[in-house]
Design a protein around this nucleic acid. Sequence first.
DNA 1: ACATTAAGTGATT
DNA 2: AATCACTTAATGT
Length: 216
Amino acid sequence: MNATELDILRLVQRHFPVLAEKALQEEIMSVGKLYHFKAGQVIQDYGGYIKLVPLLLSGSIKVQREDEEGNELLLYFLEAGQTCSMSFSCCMMNKQSDIRTVAEEDVSMIGIPIQYVDEWMRKYQSWKNFVMRSYDQRMRDLIKTIDSIAFKKMDERLLEYLRQKVQVNTNPVLSTTHQAIAYDLNASREAISRLLKQLEKQGKVRLGRNKIELLD
DNA sequence: ACATTAAGTGATT
DNA sequence: AATCACTTAATGT
């Protein structure tokens, strides 16, 4: 047992307490590897085959979808202690990725080679629960996003987006551009600018170049 | 000082 | 709310 393996064991115990079974922890320790991504780095792109299931230790990941014309849309964010449900379904079916994942903030994660994911479902109750809970959580987030797109006006969507973004980032002052937000929400930059101006007048945000502060 | 990029504005559909 | 055409402001070299 080397140093990294011990690190992984400690990290799992710390960030994924639900994976409590000793034998499972030992397996994760021996097959899992640590990965790091810088903010903005693409972790999984469309069409790529997923070979790892991530256990997110720190940082956050943006999960997005793109249509034929190249319009992007934010689906949801992943935070520490979570995993990517899409990677489960993709690897079970041995399918190509339907989504793209980008590091929102610097990411460190444990990668589990996909061949174990299925096997552990049968072997370990806690792993199975973990997978099921992850699906449930993701489903909720997705439904929220769909609601937002289907029923809410752009200004509400924008506020919700900003709240999520603040929650997911360590820095309460967001450093992003109106254009980037427009891409995430699949809206025009001008619309975002105008809505942000309104929000500023209402005292809900403070704006600067490349800076948005959400005042709650 | 100049070029580049982000943000603001008004008109049109 | 999108798009266009343009202006103004902030920032990097």
